[in-house]
Design a protein around this nucleic acid. Structure first.
Length: 597
RNA sequence: GGCCCCGUAGCUUAGUGGUUUAAAGCGCCUGCCUGUCACGCAGGAGAUCGUCGGUUCAAAUCCGAUCGGGGUCGCCA
């Protein structure tokens, strides 16, 4: 390095280093040229320190400093000096000192960056992603990646203390039915055959339990070829765990202690445990979501019994077909203009509702298009049950229980944001338990697993498995943080015949289950311990901890919504030779040619 | 696949009921400046308004298509 060796870090210097001769290396954060005196803020990962170039003390270094520009990479030799009184900068951790440069080496020049390396400029994400190496120089981004590192370190430390083994599982594995679309990798040595990248290490970790590993974890990359969202990337990271001889309580308690440890180690926050638990049914009934944001109340109110004999046909027909009528009270929104209520109706319809009934308790009295169908008594009972008072807006949805829940759940969140009911500082954890095991898929005309096909039913519900599959509850649990599903897990089936029964319920033939999962079924016959586990979306967790709105901000090199990497330009076409080796012929239907057809 | 939003100097934005030279701040370049720290002062360069097509005497502005980015529904066991 031009004959110099770094002795100190820019951000770590203080009055304690007074009069020391130091060699620093870093990037030019800013340069202030006063003509006869030059200041350079030198930046490394640890912070910023001010270098002073004075022609009277070091003429050569000074003249070299004149040609320096932002983001040049420098090696600076100099002496740590206390700043003259009145020039202390309280905004810098190193603000009490400065370095009097005696020697300057330009290690590398830099083009003027396309955007400022600074946290207070909002730059278009396209440019940030294209020049990710510049974006990642910003302290805000470095803070996120440091938090990520600290979190995974805390996880490893905690789990190591609790006898977990970190074990890697294959990335090239077997495509399985159920679940998300697989990313496929062609096998050159087995023409026409494909590996799948793992959607999660689920089966491998269960096999590791069969193998007697007792406690396993992995910080595992997972792949799902589905559409992207702010909190969904095609490749993402799971904290995956599995424990033998465990029941639900063991796992829930361990996870609570782990979260407490992680938040203490990384954010120095004390989480109070145990976390509250809600059953799936309760969460849907009260909050209209299986991942309710419990940072605010605004619960759903069931008014079905209050309107069971009213004259409003929409309510009547919903009730007659086994549905419900429920509402929420948007407090203080009673004077919304009609247009705003229409917008809410649109939102409701986009969530699957047929419409939105409302009662506005305006300053000029009650306004409601449905009032004429209700008796005075019915109206009063509804308002009373919903805690309505002057200035409130009561919104109602009548439909099947699941539609009612979805629609009101969305409206509830909308008002939570709109009315600032959410404390952004809060970390609100909760467990959702007793999920249904199965769900009828009308499109595929079969049951699908709500969690996954390896989840064990609640023992109390085992008898229902064949008679009433949709009433069977699962030994599954989700951890929810601030309305985001952080992770989910279950106690697994560890018995071949129950697992086969499960596959059968999911519509797999015996041949299919053997072809896809035969190794698991066989393993189950060689002494499988009861076991269970959980997996967390690490990106989401760190996003919440860093108070970001997208996991892209806590992933070093994320992809765009169209699953491309703007820096490397992946994905991209490959050489015909590569395809030939893989025995792959392309069959691309372009939009234009399909229009012609 | 559906719906919605965005695209103007390097960056952030203004300008859009259709008219001549597209405006500003920051950045960049040059000069001056020995205590600044988002240094200051003076001057300068820099944009065929994402792309293609249409309407029009005239388009950054209106229309259509397309590309790119984002949000969301579907999808995500």
């Amino acid at each position: 390095m031009a004959g110099l060796k770094r002795t100190h870090l820019c951000g770590k210097l203080s009055l304690q280093n007074l009069d020391e001769e130091v060699v620093l290396m870093g990037w030019v954060h800013r340069r202030r040229d006063h003509g006869g005196l030059i200041f350079i803020d030198l930046r490394d990962r640890y912070g910023i320190v001010q270098i002073v170039f004075n022609p009277d003390l070091a003429g050569q270094a000074f003249s070299k400093a004149e040609e320096v520009r932002n983001e040049y990479v420098l090696a600076v030799k100099g002496k740590v000096t206390a700043r003259p009184s009145g020039t202390i900068n309280p905004n810098l951790t190193t603000g009490e000192i400065e370095i009097y440069a005696t020697d300057l080496k330009i290690l590398n020049k830099a083009k003027t960056p396309p955007f400022y390396i600074s946290d207070d400029v909002e730059v278009d994400e396209t440019i940030r992603l294209k020049y990710r190496y510049l974006d990642l120089r910003r302290t805000e981004m470095q803070k996120s990646l440091i938090l990520r590192h600290k979190t995974t370190k805390a996880i490893r430390d905690f789990l190591d203390k609790h006898n977990f083994l970190e074990i890697e599982t294959p990335m090239l594995t077997k495509s399985s039915p159920e679940g998300a679309r697989d990313y496929l990798v062609p096998s050159r040595v087995n023409p026409g055959e494909f590996y799948a990248l793992p959607q999660s290490p689920q089966l491998f970790k269960q096999i590791l339990m069969v193998a007697g590993m007792d406690r396993y974890f992995q910080i595992a990359r997972c792949f799902r070829d589905e559409d992207l969202r702010a909190d969904r990337q095609p490749e993402f990271t799971q904290l995956d765990m599995e424990i033998s001889f465990s029941d639900r309580e063991t796992i829930i308690t361990l996870v609570e202690e782990m979260m407490q440890y992680i938040f203490k180690e990384t954010l120095n926050l004390d989480l109070s445990i145990p976390f509250p638990r809600l059953t799936y049914y309760e969460a849907m009934e009260r909050f209209g979501s299986d991942k309710p944001d419990l940072r605010f109340k605004m619960e759903l109110v069931d008014i079905s019994d209050l309107v069971k004999s009213c004259n409003f046909k929409v309510f009547q027909s919903a009730l007659a077909t086994g549905g419900k009528v429920k509402g929420i009270n948007a407090e203080g929104c009673g004077n919304y203009p009609r247009r705003q209520i229409d917008d809410l109706t649109k939102l409701a319809i986009s969530c699957g509702s047929k419409g939105l009934a409302w009662i506005a308790l305006t300053d000029e009295g009650l306004k409601s298009p449905i009032a004429k169908f209700l008796t005075e008594e019915e109206l009063n009972n509804i308002i009373k049950k919903m805690g309505g008072k002057q200035g409130d807006l009561l919104l109602f949805v009548a439909d099947s229980p699941s539609v009612v829940a979805t629609v009101l759940g969305h409206l509830r969140l909308e008002f939570g944001k709109r009315l600032n009911l959410i404390n952004p500082e809060e970390f609100n954890f909760s467990w959702i338990i007793d999920f249904p095991l199965l769900e009828w898929d009308p499109e595929e005309k079969r049951y699908v697993a709500i969690h996954h096909p390896f989840t064990a039913p609640l023992e109390a519900d085992l008898d229902l498995l064949e008679s009433e599959p949709d009433r069977v509850r699962a030994q599954a649990y989700d951890l929810v943080l601030n309305g985001v599903e952080l992770g989910g897990g279950s106690i697994r089936i560890h018995n071949r015949s129950i697992q086969e029964k499960m596959f059968k319920l999911l519509g797999l033939t015996k041949e299919q289950s053997l072809e896809k999962f035969g190794y698991l079924l066989e393993a189950f016959e060689y002494g499988t311990p009861p076991h269970g586990g959980i997996a967390f979306g690490l990106d989401r967790m760190i996003m919440l901890m860093a108070r970001k709105d997208t996991i892209r901000d806590v992933i070093a090199f994320p992809k765009t919504q169209s699953a491309s990497d703007l820096m490397t330009q992946a994905p991209s076409p490959v050489e015909p030779k590569q395809l030939k080796e893989l025995h792959i012929k392309l069959d691309i239907v372009t939009k234009k040619s399909s229009d012609v057809n």
